[in-house]
Design a protein around this nucleic acid. Structure first.
Lengths: 249, 249
DNA sequence: CGACTTTTTGATCCGATTCAATACGCGTGG
DNA sequence: CCACGCGTATTGAATCGGATCAAAAAGTCG
């Protein structure tokens, strides 16, 4: 039995969707919204291990994740996987295929998940016609860019503790955004995936998890995680975060 | 005397510009191009150390770098700088400010450099009216996203040698794109900046530079760099590059 | 329950950081 | 023109953290 399958994924209109305000149709008028909704396809949920798209596929759709979680990855020469991102509800998938028309990575579902499928060509055409849609679309792309740059700073500069703390905090915040508890949640991703994502060995991730537990920062039970000391975690996570808006050399 | 000041930065129309085919006005018709060119401003070149924009500034313009080089950075709590990117001719600056309307980093010129200034609001308005411009604009943003993700993989997973090799190769390729030699060029960035960018200590960068020289891979004289063994450098650079389009788990 | 996978823990090794000292490059002023 | 000083780059020695290899423990599933 899947942990979230009691959510019947019932959203059929954007108006009713919790994610409305951070999603593409934000600030469309009634008429525009109708046209937008006609374009969206709601497919049956995918189950753990199924692929949304694969590396090398040509770009047909973008996807907004509505329920569940998903990882994007690409294989490396030595047989490992480079994780390019974890996706939780509200995030848009497939943008990195826009420039080249080919998906540079594969998207695999980590637990039963639902998506809104957006035919890419239709979206582009509609953007030509609806300026506020174009604006929001471009904003979402640029947000991805920001996220990606932020992750780069986090995952390449900090020590293992800082990285994992950052990761926990970011998952926590997305949970909060989505209306779930930000201190108690399931993490559907495997240790090895987190390790790849944070560019650490899985043993290291494991050790840091253990250390966080003995230090009373978190408690875990299987995939279930409870954040006990958000303050300290934030401190660890923030250690290399760029100081915003400070005058510099 | 500046090393590139003999280039009088004479480009006044996009049509004449070397970068035309990879830049925004690509595939505009004559009439559209006229409107586009009217929007662009050519300011006087900036000199080393001057800022194009600063962290916290509100977004007014995007910039395409035409001649020179530029680094984007943000200060960290401990007084260092996070380098978010080096920019060589043809690249567009300021995109990471689009989502939040505020520049998340500062852009500082590394040598005398010229830019095309694109008023952001005007660009957006013009995109509403010219679909092919919108398309190219979105493509350029998504290319930034790709670059950023690629850099993340490079700079967080590899050893120092691989990172520096990747970096040298990427500079080399951009030089080639721009019509300069891809094996002999000036690198205007300081060691410490490269170090920050690659997330290494500057001593480490220095050591690897030395090692590459004793191994005959490169020769350096001040900021001038000569790549002697592109094959080996590519090999080093490629070691963790994701294998494109390979079927995976 | 037993086979298999995933996670945790332990011991060792290697590479990058750090701290410290020296060398180099460049501009200034004598 | 050279001497001096400052910033940047290089080199050396010691330390620390994460990777790796190996093995045990916990969780998963038929």
């Amino acid at each position: 039995m899947d942990k979230i399958s009691h959510i019947k994924h019932p959203v059929s209109t954007c108006r009713e969707c919790k994610l409305y305000n951070s999603c593409l149709p934000k600030s469309l008028n009634k008429n525009e919204l109708n046209r937008f909704e006609k374009m969206i396809k709601h497919k049956a949920p995918l189950r753990e291990g199924e692929h949304l798209f694969r590396q090398g596929n040509s770009l047909k759709n973008l996807y907004v994740i509505r329920v569940g979680s998903c990882k994007c990855y690409s294989p490396t020469i030595d047989g490992r996987q480079n994780i390019s991102g974890f996706y939780l509800p509200g995030k848009i998938l497939g943008l990195n295929a826009v420039a080249g028309d080919i998906h540079p990575d594969s998207a695999k579902v980590l637990e039963t998940s639902s998506f809104c499928e957006i035919p890419y060509n239709d979206l582009r055409d509609l953007c030509y016609q609806i300026p506020s849609l174009q604006k929001q679309y471009i904003n979402m792309i640029c947000n991805e860019l920001l996220d990606s740059q932020a992750l780069m700073l986090i995952s390449s500069k900090n020590k293992a503790e800082n990285r994992l703390a950052s990761f926990l905090i970011s998952v926590s915040q997305r949970m909060k955004l989505r209306g779930y508890s930000c201190t108690d949640f399931n993490m559907s991703m495997a240790r090895i995936d987190i390790a790849n994502y944070l560019c650490l060995a899985n043993e290291t991730v494991s050790r840091v998890f253990s250390r966080f537990q003995t230090e009373g920062l978190i408690a875990t039970k299987g995939k279930y995680v409870k954040l006990l000391n958000l303050h300290k975690l934030n401190e660890l996570a923030g250690i290399e975060v760029p100081l915003k808006y400070q005058e510099s050399v």
